[in-house]
Structures are given as C-alpha cells and as structure tokens.
Design a binder for these strands. Sequence first.
DNA 1: GTTAGCACTCAGAGAGTTTGAGTGCTAAAA
DNA 2: TTTTAGCACTCAAACTCTCTGAGTGCTAAC
Lengths: 350, 350
Amino acid sequence: MDLTERKKRILRAIIENYIQSAEPVGSKTIAQSIGMEVSSATIRNEMADLEAMGLLEKPHTSAGRIPSSKGYRFYVNELMEDHKLSLQETERMNQALRMKMQELDRVLDQAGRMVAQLTSYPAFALSAGTERMTIRRFDLLMVERNAFIIVVMTDSNIVRNRLIRLPSDLSEAQLQMLNTLLNTTFTGLTLEEITPELMRVAQHAAGDAYGLISLVVSFAMEVLESLEQRRVHTSGLAHLLELPEYQSLERAQPLMSYLSEDSDPARFPVPKDDPMKILIGPENVADALKDTSVVVASYDIGEGMRGVIGVVGPTRMDYAKITARLSYLAEGLSRLFGQGELPQGRDEEK
Amino acid sequence: MDLTERKKRILRAIIENYIQSAEPVGSKTIAQSIGMEVSSATIRNEMADLEAMGLLEKPHTSAGRIPSSKGYRFYVNELMEDHKLSLQETERMNQALRMKMQELDRVLDQAGRMVAQLTSYPAFALSAGTERMTIRRFDLLMVERNAFIIVVMTDSNIVRNRLIRLPSDLSEAQLQMLNTLLNTTFTGLTLEEITPELMRVAQHAAGDAYGLISLVVSFAMEVLESLEQRRVHTSGLAHLLELPEYQSLERAQPLMSYLSEDSDPARFPVPKDDPMKILIGPENVADALKDTSVVVASYDIGEGMRGVIGVVGPTRMDYAKITARLSYLAEGLSRLFGQGELPQGRDEEK
DNA sequence: GTTAGCACTCAGAGAGTTTGAGTGCTAAAA
DNA sequence: TTTTAGCACTCAAACTCTCTGAGTGCTAAC
C-alpha cells in the first residue's frame, strides 16, 4: 500500500482528529488543520481516493469521513508516532506500581484494575501458564492433635496451603510417614499422571492414614488445576459509558455483558511472540469485539509464566497513548516480579 | 401506620405490579386485578388516600401511581410474603455453591459473582473482620540452600505463605533458630504491638540472621494488614443495563462508576445484628445509592469473621425473591465454611 | 360508601419542516 | 496535469406541531 506523502498526511490528520472528536471529519476541517496549504476541494479529491483504497469510509453521503479498520491498521503500522509519556504519566504509573507491590497477592486482579484506572478504558488481565505444572514438594505441619497444614510448592515455585481438620487425632509419626510418602510418590507428576491406580497404591502404603492421602492429594490436584486454569479479571467497565460510542444502550450492553462474563479466558487474545499486540475491529475473533479494538501486552511473571494485560475500547482509540502506557505498565510489572527491586518471592494468584 | 385491609390489598397490588412492569400503575389495572370487586373510581379514591399518606406518588398528573420509598418500606415490613424458593432455584443455587467449593480461594470474589449471577442484579461481597488479629504460629520450610517458605497462621486459623529467596546460603540450624525466635517473640501480637523496638531486640537476638527477621516479620505484618483491611468485590454490573430504569445513560453511569470504584468498603452497608438488611432508596447513606435499594446478608466465615454479600438494584426490586435467594446463599456459604460438609479448613481471602 | 360520568392533563409518538455540514462534479485557473 | 472556486445535491439531526390515550380529580347520583 503506497501513498503519496500528502495522502499520508491527510489520512493521519483525519484519524487523529477522529480519535479526539469521535465525529466524522470533513474536508474543511482538514484543510484548516495544521499547515495544509491546499483548499478543501483538493482534500476532497484526496479523500475520495483514500476511500477508494478502503482506508476511509462515510457513515452516510453527507457526513464527513471516518477511518475504516483498514485505515486504523495502516495508521498503527506506518503513521503512528510513539507517544512520549509525560513526567506526570510515568510518575502516576510508578506510584501505582509501587502501591501494588504491597499486595503481591492478587496481582492479576490488581493489575487489571490499575490498567483500567490509568488508561480510562475497560481492562482485563489474565495469566497464561504455558507449561504443565507439577508439585515439587509437600510439607505437612502439625497444628493441633487433630489439625495440620498442607503446604505444596509447584515446580514453578508457587506455594499454596490449606488447613485441614480431622475428626480424629493424628500422631507426629504418622504425619512424618505421610510426608515422606507424598514426597516420594506424588512429586513431579502432572495432573493427568496422578491416576486413580496410583492413589490406590499410595493409600495402601499409608496404612491407617489412608484417608488422609486422598485429602492431601486432592488439594494438590486442586492447586494444579487452578493454576492451569487461566482466569480473567475485567475492571473499569464503567469507563465504557463515558465514551460517545457507547452512549446508546444497544451498543454498550452486549459489550458490557461480554466483558462481564469473564468465565472463559480463551475469548481474550494473547500476544504470542511480540510483547504487544493490537487488534482492530474485525481482526478480533469474538463477535462482540468486532467493532472494538483491543490492545494487549504481556509481562513476565517468572518461572515460565506470562501475564497479560489489555484494554478494550472503540476502534477510535488513542493507539499511541494506550500502547505507550500499556507497555510501560507491562514492563513495570515484569520488573516487579523479576528482580530484587522489591520483596522477593511470590506465592499467590497463578 | 394503620391501614384498612382494602388499602393494604391495593397498595400491595400496586407495588407488586410495579415491581414486575416498571410502569406506573393505574386505577383500572388494579380494579381488574385479582378479585377486586370494586370499580376503578373507588380505587382512585383509595389511591388518593395512600398518596396523602406518603405511600404512593405520581411521576406526573396524568400517569398512574408508583410506590414511594416509604411505600416500599411498608411493603417490606408488613405486606411482603416470603418467597418460596422453587426446586429449580434451590437446585441451581446448590449447584453453584458446590462448584465454588472447589475454589475456596478467592471466596469473596466468587461469592459476589455467584450472587450476581443468581439474582441478575449487580452484587458485591466484602468481608468484615471484626477483631484484631494476631499471628499464632510461624513455620519456616527450607526449600533450597538459599530459599525457604514462610508459613504463618493467624489466631483465626487463616494460613498464608510466601517463598523467600536469599542472596546467600542459609543453614538448617539457622532456620531452626529463627523459627524458635519468631514463635517465642512474635506470636500473639496485634499489628500495633509489633513495635520497632521489639524488632530491634529480636534482630539482636538473631545474630547472623538479623536481616531475615525483618523479612519474615514484615510478611507477617502484611498478612495481618491485608486481613484487617476489608475489600469489596463487585460483579454483574452489566445486569444494570438490562433494567428499564437504567436505559438512560445519565442514570446508569453514576451508579456504575460508584460500584466500580470499589476501593472503599465503608461505602457498603453491613448488617449489624440481623442476618439480613434492606435499605430502600434514601435510607442509603451514599448519594449514588439514593434511588436504589440495597439488600445485604451476612454469613459466617468462622473464627470471628463474617462475610457480607449484597445486591444493588432499583427501588422497584423483587424484595421477596431477592431476600429469599440471598439468605439461602448466605446460609449456604456459612455451611460451606462452617461444618464438615466439605473439604474443611480454609486458607485464603480473608 | 360506592359508582358512573365527564372535563382535564400531559408524556410520548408521529409527521412534517428546517438547517447546515458535507459531498461530488464541472469548468476555469495555474 | 493539478488545483481551485462554485454550485447543486444529500441527508441526519434538530425542531415544531399535532394528536392520542391513559390516567386523574371532581361531582352528582345511587
């Protein structure tokens, strides 16, 4: 797709104007805008060309032009300049990141909220555990005669625990035995490899404490399952209603519902190779997102896991600003997890 | 407030009709409705009386009547019959409860979602830790030469953990010593009682490992803090847009925003003594909730903590149905935490 | 105390009109 | 060959006006 320099300037002016105003842009506006020394008629001709190329479209005959999805795509790929983050912006984001550090728990959720807040668009956050996980070690801690804590740690260094109460008492020796049995039999296995047969064998070996084995192992399985099962958090939905394109309920409602039923993470795009991905309008697979754009960035959680944050908005979206902010946040989150900048180790929220 | 039997019947008919239709109710409708053997003119007279008493109001001269907040209050207190939960309803709720069992993690969040889903109204969930908490025990588990897991358990049997990595190696003996020191010095103390002086003394006693003490103790403090700090989760916001009263954006938007910025739990009412509370329109403190009703129920998390679930909706809300469902769910959640119905113990999400 | 009847009110729907931003085309100018 | 001025045309959106009908309050008769 080759365009003359002037066509590029015009296209860009139209898109940036539309991003701000959400109103179709007319030839006159463009003619007046920054240093365009030609008349509106000329612009009109150029616009007609751009329309023929599929980069612009008209809502109706007597309105101005609006960018098509293809137009946005061209803009994003070739025209867009990097948005320079202002000092205030970075300061604000740093502050948010610093605050969140205190609650390494629930990072996912928090990350989403933060993004929503800092971009003023609805945001989502999800994790993408790529590999199959296994339990690396079990620890059983006696609390009282009839209660103990299970602590399991996965091969990716995630630690989870649960308090178990028993109807009957338990001896320290039994617990010890159980502990050894678990660590020899159930470590290094994926969810599928923990078969009923294996359970039966182990229960047999456990003697008296055979009931406990299944309690502990099923907890371990729950942990593996919950870590593999990716979850999405959406936040900032209310921002949608501030946008002119969602002033009409018919448009807002389906999208809202789609974003709320966050059961299925598969519905959200995950950047594969690049750290950042932009999906414009129909490029989205999901029907409900067909006239929205989605910008996603991924960050490193460490230990073979990546987190994903993203925002959803109208195709008319300030791509430059949003990508700048999102990648800054993604980097911040990576740092937050990665190095020793902050309290090390992490234990929560896959 | 004494009403004749007939006035009560009329008021009730109006409210129940309005709850269903969201349209002002006219005298004719009522006259035709269930077994009213009088004419519409009579009803009109009665309605005028009810209006004079402040139980009804008119949106404008030539419309029907709608219940006032006072009217709803009267209805809730005196007229409302218990809604019988159908088999399908309870079955559906049981199923939801059963499903959620699997993720005792994140109960709060899940509880909210569940309520939203089962009531078709936006819902919120929050915890209300009443007492000051303390750490009951510490456990340190060696993972590698330079990494260990801290496990802390509070006096209310909540267990949290974190993986700590060190720049240098650590001996089993040191860990043992640290463990003892922690359990003798820092157990049974509230957040305030863990003073800098105490820390200094402990660090001194720890010898080589003095840096570790602060690491571990600050984790413990984070845990106490996060448990005391109450948090709110809202979900099902999109349901709002399905309701006729929120078809206009001006009305939906402020409420949405209010419910989204869920930073401050203080903004949500908590039932004090009763297990269930209904706040109608202006009875709500928050401005944004002035023309909505809020129904809250609390449930037992055990160990001195109560959880709260609630729904928000228009004042025209099917109080009978909502309260029935909410209290069923609250009970279910209590059971879920309390007895041995299900995997005992819990470890997450204050 | 109840009812029939009637005049009155008023939001909301529908039809028609106006407005103005914006277009495409043509013919002249550069 | 490109640019421009000019003009006729289009059409959504805003505005006005009228009509409709559900619903009321009041009065007088039952």
